[in-house]
C-alpha cells in the first residue's frame, strides 16, 4: 500500500530557475494549475483545475504557505474536497531543491493524506487479511493432504 507520494526529478537548470517555476503564478500555471501563489509564509492561495468526481475532488485546492527557504524549500498545505465548503482531505506538499551536477534535483513529497490513526488501522487490517488468507490456505492444504 502506498502511504505517501514521492517524486524526484532532475533538471539541467539552476535551482533559481526551478524556484521561479514553483513560485511565480504565471510560470507555475504553465505546467501545474491556475493559481495565486506568493512565496510568503502564511499566504493563502488556491489552485483551480478540472474536477475528478470519482475520488471526490471538485478541482479546487485550498493552500497556505507553510515554509519558504528561497531556492531550497517550499511547503504548503493542500486541502480539497468534493464541493465548495467541504474539505475532506487535508495534506501537505513539500518541494525541496538541491543543486546537483550543474543542475537541480527537485523532490516532491505529498504527505499527510492518511492520518496516523488511519495508517495504523489500514496496516492492522491488511495484516488481518493476510493472516486470515493464510489460515484458509492452511485449512485447504490440510483437506487436500
Amino acid at each position: 500500500m502506498k502511504k505517501d507520494i514521492n517524486h524526484i526529478f532532475y533538471f539541467p537548470h539552476k535551482p533559481e530557475k526551478i524556484w521561479d517555476y514553483l513560485t511565480k503564478p504565471e510560470l507555475l500555471e504553465q505546467w501545474l494549475m491556475k493559481n495565486d501563489i506568493k512565496p510568503v509564509a502564511g499566504h493563502k492561495f488556491q489552485f483551480k483545475s478540472g474536477p475528478a468526481p470519482q475520488i471526490g475532488f471538485d478541482g479546487n485546492v485550498y493552500c497556505e504557505i507553510l515554509e519558504v527557504v528561497p531556492n531550497q524549500l517550499l511547503s504548503y498545505s493542500w486541502n480539497c474536497g468534493p464541493e465548495k465548503g467541504r474539505i475532506t482531505v487535508e495534506s501537505t506538499v513539500i518541494w525541496t531543491l538541491n543543486p546537483k551536477d550543474n543542475g537541480t534535483e527537485l523532490t516532491l513529497k505529498h504527505t499527510g493524506i492518511y492520518s496516523t490513526e488511519t495508517l495504523v488501522m489500514y496496516d492492522a487490517m491488511y495484516a488481518g487479511w493476510a493472516s486470515n488468507a493464510k489460515k484458509l490456505a492452511d485449512r485447504l492444504n490440510n483437506i487436500t493432504k
Binding site: 500500500m1 502506498k2 502511504k3 507520494i5 517524486h7 526529478f9 533538471f11 537548470h13 530557475k17 526551478i18 517555476y21 504553465q30 505546467w31 501545474l32 475528478a52 470519482q54 475520488i55 471526490g56 475532488f57 482531505v89 527537485l106 516532491l108 505529498h110 493524506i113 492518511y114
Partner: peptide, 22 residues
C-alpha cells in the same frame, strides 16, 4: 487508496510537463 493513486499520477504528469517546458 484511489485518492492517493490519483494524485500520484497527477504529480507525475505535471512534473513531466515542467520538464518539457524547461
Amino acid at each position: 487508496q484511489e485518492w492517493i493513486n490519483y494524485f500520484d499520477n497527477f504529480w507525475n504528469t505535471k512534473l513531466k510537463k515542467l520538464e518539457k517546458l524547461l
